[in-house]
Amino acid sequence: MLPLCAAEGVGVIPWSPLARGRLARPWQSATTTRTENDQFGKGLYGATEEADRRIVDRVSEIAQSRGVPMAQVALAWMLSKRPITAPIIGATKPQHLDDAVKALDVKLTAEEIEKLEEFYVPHAIAGFK
């Protein structure tokens, strides 16, 4: 889909860019009203937890070394990718909006991007059939 959108000049506005908060905190370190009650979210991310955990750990490492929240690292990664126009972020706590905007100033190095992507495995399509 992404090469198609790049070739055709179609903007891309990804939903759930922080994977329902999974990329914004250490793995299963906290539950929220939403982690408990978002049935749709469980269907999106339940199948790839082992692979995803290693990526969340990497986000955490890079966030710690830079001294910024994990959400900023995860969004900075997405913002660095062509042809992403704008991630659709959710904000239900005050820091969510500020983290999203501050992510625009976080420029990841090639080495950091490589570390974030090292453990990625293709995910089955989720959210539609």
Binding site: C5, E8, G9, V10, G11, V12, I13, W15, L79, P83, T85, A86, P87, I88, I89, G90, A91, L97, A100, V101, A103, L104
Partner: peptide, 16 residues
Amino acid sequence: VNLGRTGLKVSRICLG
């Protein structure tokens, strides 16, 4: 940035 090849300008963060 422009939304795709349209002339419409949008902020690089969209509030969901």
